[in-house]
Deep mutational scan, measured.
Amino acid sequence: RHRTTFSPVQLEQLESAFGRNQYPDIWARESLARDTGLSEARIQVWFQNRRAKQRK
């Protein structure tokens, strides 16, 4: 699998969602996937990585 590159618009949507809830449930992730055009799995990994980045 190649590395996913996120567009500025996608990142804005993801960061906005992260600001509201750092642990989105499956319904929120699937909604974000539809809105961004990404797969739910990529959304899930993005949130995992974003939480790890915040802990540093």
Rank of each mutant, 00 (worst) to 15 (best):
R1T: 11
H2M: 09
H2T: 12
T4E: 14
T4Y: 15
T4R: 09
T5E: 10
T5Y: 10
P8L: 07
V9T: 12
V9M: 11
V9R: 15
Q10H: 05
Q10G: 03
Q10C: 04
L11W: 06
E12V: 10
E12R: 11
E12I: 09
Q13G: 04
Q13R: 13
Q13C: 15
L14W: 00
L14Y: 02
L14T: 02
L14F: 02
L14M: 03
E15N: 02
E15C: 03
S16Y: 06
S16I: 12
S16G: 09
F18N: 00
F18K: 01
F18Y: 13
F18C: 02
G19M: 14
R20M: 09
N21E: 06
N21G: 06
Q22I: 03
Y23S: 08
Y23G: 01
Y23P: 03
P24Y: 05
P24R: 02
D25Y: 02
I26P: 07
W27F: 12
A28H: 15
A28I: 04
R29F: 04
R29N: 03
E30G: 09
S31N: 11
L32K: 00
A33N: 02
A33E: 04
R34Q: 07
D35A: 13
D35P: 02
G37P: 02
L38S: 08
L38R: 02
L38W: 03
S39F: 01
S39C: 15
S39N: 14
S39T: 09
E40C: 07
E40G: 08
E40S: 10
A41H: 08
R42M: 12
R42G: 12
I43P: 00
I43K: 00
I43R: 01
Q44D: 11
Q44W: 06
Q44E: 11
Q44A: 13
V45T: 12
V45L: 14
W46T: 01
W46Q: 01
W46D: 01
F47G: 02
Q48H: 03
Q48T: 11
R51D: 00
A52Q: 04
K53R: 11
K53S: 10
K53H: 10
K53C: 07
Q54A: 12
Q54Y: 06
Q54S: 11
Q54I: 05
Q54C: 10
R55N: 07
K56D: 15
